[in-house]
């Protein structure tokens, strides 16, 4: 099937089979391997991308569902240098193995688009379904709060 959609700001078309997930389309068809597969069942958050302004799990969406949509992946975030959140991840030591990081960053970019100054509760809600096994989340929270502080100044 032919799909036509906006990917990281550019209009793209692709001929795909109906039984590919969006994650597979992004990684295999478009070579955007920054989006990770941690479980394939929507349980870990590593495959999070932004679809029509909302963060979603690309492993639970069929590629054909992307037709007509607008999708942003981790590759778009640093197109003009690191984002505030990415910088905060660096500084706060919020990265260890890094496999979950793109998912956290995408959830965060979507959060900061929804609200410039999220409360702790809103950060928790945004990150609730993202698993990280290395950091214990503490540094990730600190990174999110750092962006928050920066935006209010």
């Amino acid at each position: 099937m032919k799909i036509k959609f906006k990917l990281n700001g550019e209009l793209k078309t692709a001929e795909i089979v109906s039984y590919m997930t969006l994650l597979e389309v992004l990684r295999d068809t478009f070579g955007l391997t920054g989006t990770k597969c941690g479980c394939g069942n929507g349980e870990c958050g590593a495959c999070t991308v932004i679809m029509n302004g909302h963060p979603v799990r690309s492993c639970l969406i069929l590629g054909v569902e992307a037709d007509g949509s607008e999708i942003f992946t981790i590759e778009s975030v640093s197109a003009n240098g690191l984002s505030d959140l990415q910088k905060a991840f660096l500084e706060e030591g919020a990265v260890q193995c890094g496999f979950c990081t793109p998912g956290f960053i995408m959830a965060g970019e979507a959060l900061f688009k929804r609200t410039q100054n999220p409360t702790d509760e809103e950060i928790k809600i945004a990150l609730g379904g993202h698993l990280c096994r290395c950091t214990g989340y503490d540094a990730i929270f600190k990174a999110f709060k750092k962006v928050k502080v920066k935006k209010t100044l």
Partner: peptide
Amino acid sequence: NSVIRNDVIEKVTGTAKYIDD
């Protein structure tokens, strides 16, 4: 010193290559 880890840019930008990549 708490220098910033040297593999972090590739990890926050999604360019780090894991085996499936």
